[in-house]
Nucleic acid binder design. Structure first.
Lengths: 246, 246
DNA sequence: AAAAACAACTTGTATGTACAAGTTATAATT
DNA sequence: AATTATAACTTGTACATACAAGTTGTTTTT
């Protein structure tokens, strides 16, 4: 580490602060810097990389922007549970509150298939050339099914991952820890629709009940890889929440 | 400007970069730096404020974070239409696309009233002590009503603004330009519900149809001022959209 | 007139220094 | 032992300098 030299080739990936950012992010993703722990101090990181504090601070500010850490003057940089800091729509009962019993059941395990025309976003040309991986999940709160979720992604950008290999049952956590892939953005479309027969059956409600339908495309840190989702939510007892702060 | 001196009193509002940030933001809000135009260069701003580029860049980076500008190497900092850059839920037809005819009609003009218990978020103690301003709007796309919207805010934090005084019919634009108040965050809750008699009447749909109900609390740049909203959306033809990027 | 080369200008990255402001640990006092 | 004062440590702000990399305008060449 102490022999680190920035290569000035015009490729920003070789920029010093980027390399430091990537190094720290990877250690967070792999649990070397666990959630809740404090990173080494800025001066310590300076020593490790043989660079100035300005450069280290730039790397840390980028990690702050990505939602990996929060900083406090005099105290240090603390690793965050990243998902919580994104402006994603989440089910109220899935907030980590200790009052609810939550679980996710994979009802259709990942398999290679063709793209489903129900996907609300237009595919890239590269995606169209590829088959996709598809899987389905149902999320429960207090043993009640509240979300039926279909997921797709291009199989030529990311291999099929068996749901048995999902870390703590979480697909996103698996991407982060095993593949170093992060969600970097999303587009979402919301509609209120009557529950179809299939949705009603999976969510244990009456056909025709109002259901929140969310179509989503997640942009990831891996170029070319988008994750598509189609969610059907029963919001009777648990609304969908979203928050963001500048 | 050239005699500017930072006051080191521990109050970050007196920090140099903050003052520069505030100055530029105000000029954006008042149209002195119109949307689409380029700010003075970093070196020019250095000259204006008698400070270093590091400090100016810090101010610009904060404006970037707030969504007021975008920066491009070699070109400059361009003023953005801010609303577009926030992760807010918006109606698809309100995206500024030239294909739709949009309008907003104030169906109940702003008046002082008591807080409505339908508000989904708990009020602060200060808010509870105050009356509130309430108004209602209906948004149309191609002459079809698509959103019925109720709004409230504490009247002791912000005076009643007559809807005739809304700039271009927009409450938020009025806050920004006349009061220098910006939305800095939001919490939203989404439910799918059957349309009540009132909602159905306002949206011209059948009672009991699935409706997207959005409760929202906007956090603003003015301490103590929150804006509460209750929206009922007919998503049949125009879904609600949301996107964000890190 | 059009294309290429060059200069001027703009933002991006990195170095280094210094002091401010906050947190935590240690030492001194009661 | 508990409280207070001090020191050590941490992040925040600002100054200054230098070079890189991109955009735009001007000049030179074809």
């Amino acid at each position: 580490m102490s022999n680190f030299v920035a290569v000035k080739t015009g490729n920003i990936k070789n920029r010093k602060y980027h390399t430091i950012q990537d190094y720290i992010r990877k250690r967070i993703q792999t649990g070397k810097y666990p959630v809740g722990s404090y990173l080494p101090s800025e001066n310590e990181i300076c020593g490790q990389f043989g660079t100035t504090r300005t450069t280290v601070r730039k790397a840390l500010d980028e990690l702050l922007k990505e939602g990996f850490i929060e900083k406090e003057q005099g105290k240090g940089s603390k690793v965050l549970e990243r998902r919580k800091s994104l402006g994603l729509l989440t089910v109220k009962g899935f907030s980590g509150s200790i009052d609810y019993k939550v679980k996710t059941v994979v009802t259709k395990g990942p398999k290679i298939t063709e793209w489903n025309p129900v996907i609300a976003f237009s595919l890239t040309e590269e995606e169209k050339k590829s088959n996709c991986v598809y899987f389905q999940r149902v999320r429960y709160i207090n043993d009640r099914p509240v979300v039926l979720e279909n997921n797709w992604y291009a199989s030529n950008e990311l291999q099929l991952i068996d749901s048995d290999a999902f870390i703590e049952g979480s697909f996103f956590k698996t991407l982060s820890q095993n593949h170093f892939i992060e969600v970097m953005g999303a587009e979402q479309e919301l509609r209120s629709i009557p529950a179809s027969k299939e949705v009603a059956k999976n969510l244990g409600i009456q056909e025709g009940s109002p259901i929140l339908h969310i179509s989503v495309r997640f942009r990831t840190s891996k170029p070319g890889l988008n994750l598509y989702g189609d969610l059907y939510c029963n919001t009777t007892d648990y609304p969908i929440r979203n928050s963001y702060f500048l």
